[in-house]
Simulated assay, not measured.
Amino acid sequence: MLRVISALVKIGLASLITGAVLSALNLSAAELLAEIGMTPDRIFTLLQEGATWAIPNIVLGSMVIVPIWFVTYLLRPPRN
């Protein structure tokens, strides 16, 4: 758990420093998105489409994986 928290703190710190540098260079998120031909609305739409595709597949896969994991968990030898 400590590794996950450490990684999240490092990512947050790196993002903060990068954002500060880009802000000092007078760059904004909207300008960067415009450079690559995207808009915030288009990104939101892509995220919605991705979630619409991913959620049913995750549920379907978990209907197979979770029972297999549970049976495997029950059949493992006990730990000391």
Rank of each mutant, 00 (worst) to 15 (best):
L47K: 11
N57H: 13
Q48Y: 06
E31Y: 02
V66C: 00
L60H: 03
W69F: 12
A30G: 04
L47I: 07
T45Q: 07
E35W: 14
W53L: 11
I55E: 01
G61M: 00
N57Y: 08
I55C: 00
A34R: 13
L46V: 11
P40G: 10
S28P: 06
T39Q: 05
V71C: 08
V64N: 06
A51V: 05
R42V: 05
I68Q: 08
T45H: 04
I58P: 02
Q48T: 08
T45S: 06
Q48I: 04
I68K: 06
P67S: 09
L33N: 11
A30F: 06
E35Y: 15
R42S: 14
E31L: 06
M63G: 06
S28D: 08
L27P: 03
A51N: 09
I36F: 12
E49T: 12
A54L: 13
P40C: 05
F70N: 14
F44T: 15
P67H: 07
I58S: 02
V66I: 08
F44Y: 11
A29R: 15
E49M: 11
G37R: 01
A29N: 13
L46D: 04
S62H: 03
D41N: 12
I65R: 05
I43E: 07
W69G: 03
P67T: 13
L33I: 13
L46Q: 04
E31T: 10
L27A: 07
L32E: 04
V71R: 10
V59A: 05
F70C: 15
L32I: 10
V64M: 01
S28F: 11
L60T: 01
F44W: 05
I43S: 03
N57K: 15
A54K: 10
P56M: 14
I58L: 01
D41P: 05
F44P: 01
L27F: 05
I65G: 03
L25C: 13
L27T: 04
L60P: 07
L32H: 09
E31A: 04
S28W: 12
V59Y: 04
R42Q: 15
W53K: 02
L33D: 04
F44A: 15
R42D: 10
A34G: 03
L32G: 14
T39A: 10
L46P: 01
A29C: 14
A54W: 11
L33R: 08
L46W: 03
P40D: 03
G61L: 08
I55M: 10
A30N: 08
Q48A: 10
G61S: 04
S62C: 08
L33T: 09
V64L: 00
I55L: 09
Q48D: 05
A30K: 08
R42P: 06
M63E: 00
M38D: 13
S28G: 14
E31S: 00
G61P: 00
I36Q: 12
T39P: 01
N57L: 15
L47R: 10
A34W: 04
S62N: 11
G61E: 04
I55G: 01
I36C: 07
A54I: 09
A29G: 09
